[in-house]
Design a protein around this nucleic acid. Structure first.
Lengths: 168, 168
DNA sequence: CGCCCATAATTGACAGTTCAACCAATCCGG
DNA sequence: CCGGATTGGTTGAACTGTCAATTATGGGCG
């Protein structure tokens, strides 16, 4: 990934009376860190998605939905909570759950006490599917990330991720 | 993001005569690093995309296409090279370049010496557009990543990213 | 109570991506 | 040279995600 168009950067800082302050271009060290990280941001999700698609025929987002449900007590979550856990919009989740429902892995049920809420519930078939998929996914995560780093680097990565997450 | 479905993990390792070797679930420390990183992998690209979409009306991928062209000598690249630089499929690139062409920022030209190749060329209008967009994008990258970390962390992030990239 | 607003979720239309089929130019073995 | 294989690129259909509009329920206030 590229942040600074080369020829634009080559022109150097703008005159100080520009309407917008002159951009603070990245230094050499900053570029040296950002460029590989930016590439990673593209390629790693794509690689993980590809593994799930190939081995299980589902997207990473669908995996997250199933996994989130499996971790909830009685495998049930409200749609909005589920959307937050899977880091997606409610609309997207609604479409996805419709597809998962059609495949028999999830079912919907209205909340008896508050009719606005809808529960998404992981079926037994859905749980079995997830149990079949999970080992392969963990293997991929290990191969690409965990086992590629030593304990210290792994801790650094976790720390750095938490810092950046704090800015979102 | 969740890798291990809780109830499945709670069952412990499988008997050793399973057809597939029992999965090596993540340890507590590994999970502690992976979960925030996985969340980052979702949210950061979304945040960068949102900034470009809001401020410039283009996707991150389109930005990469324009930026890659701007860095090439005479602002020209073959379609396949451009696809590789932008980390996307040739098909996707072809559709995107069609759109950028319609907006007047890129034009196509067949290679005179080998008719199979197609050159994508950044127009002057495209270069101006990019120059207008870049500062805002750099600002976002700074705010979310670069300025959030100290020099040591930034170096660590770069190193770690290169290691993982090496596995893709 | 009755009205209005906020919230939860769904829906449909549209834009973008992927996938497979296709075309066109070059390379290369006979 | 000729014909198949290869490579670069495009296209269209099916699918997925996004956005805005819509429905439905519940809470609060006069």
């Amino acid at each position: 990934m590229v942040v600074v168009p080369a020829s634009a950067a080559a022109r150097g800082p703008e005159p100080p009376d520009e309407p917008a302050a002159e951009p603070r271009w990245l230094s050499t060290e900053e570029r040296a860190a950002w460029m590989p990280f930016a590439a990673l941001l593209f390629r790693l999700p794509a690689a993980l998605d590809a593994q799930l698609q190939r081995d299980a025929g589902i997207s990473h987002f669908e995996y997250m939905v199933l996994a989130s449900l499996s971790e909830a007590g009685d495998r049930t979550l409200r749609m909005s909570d589920l959307a937050a856990m899977a880091s997606g919009s409610l609309s997207r989740l609604s479409h996805v759950v419709s597809r998962l429902e059609a495949r028999g892995w999830v079912r919907r049920e209205p909340c008896p006490s508050d009719g606005r809420y809808t529960y998404a519930i992981l079926t037994d078939a859905g749980f079995r599917k997830l149990a079949a998929i999970a080992p392969g996914h963990v293997e991929a995560v290990r191969a690409l990330v965990i086992d590629a780093l030593n304990a210290r680097q792994l801790r650094q990565l976790g720390d750095i991720s938490e810092i950046i997450n704090g800015r979102l």
